[in-house]
């Protein structure tokens, strides 16, 4: 709890800094304020529904289902499921981390989770459409096409490593 108090203290201090910056026309502080508002809107609004959905997931979805699709018994299919789930995850890695942790404790193995987190930022559908329209479709297709095999390969390797280390993800977070 102490760490919580400290962090909230820092946050309040930061807000005061932004406020003072406005009052004394401190330019850098005003730029930081603009950025802060943009990011705060983007991030903080997405968290409440995301966490309620995670809560629903943990209460309703049974372990067996997750083990069958995202566990090691699922074989190569689990990477495809992980990528499909990632493509539709709103909010990128911010939301993907807590979701991945919940999946893990419902029986997904580490390689599904790694694929999921990494793919969540790589192939998010709305973002990829935006990228294609600004940088070019060829660029986007190439980036996604080349990255997915690498992501799957590295997640399989990491899975082996973590299994050997008997690494466990934090529980009860």
């Amino acid at each position: 709890m102490d760490k919580h108090k400290r962090d909230y203290g820092i946050f309040v201090g930061f807000l005061l800094f932004l406020l003072v910056s406005q009052l004394i026309d401190f330019e850098r502080g005003m730029v930081i304020t603009d950025n802060f508002i943009i990011f705060a809107r983007d991030m903080l609004l997405i968290l409440p529904p995301a966490f309620i959905i995670i809560g629903l997931f943990e209460v309703w979805v049974n372990r067996e289902k997750i083990e069958n699709s995202f566990g090691s018994a699922s074989g190569g299919r689990r990477h495809i499921y992980a990528i499909l789930l990632a493509a539709t995850t709103v909010g990128g890695t911010f939301v993907a981390f807590p979701v991945a942790n919940s999946l893990y404790h419902k029986g997904a193995d580490y390689s599904s989770i790694f694929t999921y987190i990494t793919a969540a930022s790589l192939v998010m559908i709305p973002m990829s459409i935006m990228e294609a329209s600004i940088i070019g479709l060829e660029f986007t297709l190439l980036r996604i096409g080349l990255s997915l095999p690498l992501v799957v390969i590295s997640s399989i390797l990491l899975n082996k490593l973590f299994t050997r280390m008997e690494y466990r993800l934090p529980a009860d977070v």
């Binding site: 919580h4 962090d7 309620i52």
Partner: peptide, 27 residues
């Protein structure tokens, strides 16, 4: 349903300070 809402809220409150720290860094 209540159990799910409580669980989601509890999780969010636990991690919220960490998100706020990121928000400061990023800004």
């Amino acid at each position: 349903t209540w159990q799910a809402i409580r669980r989601g809220t509890k999780k969010l409150l636990k991690i919220l300070p960490n998100y706020l720290m990121i928000l400061i860094f990023v800004a």
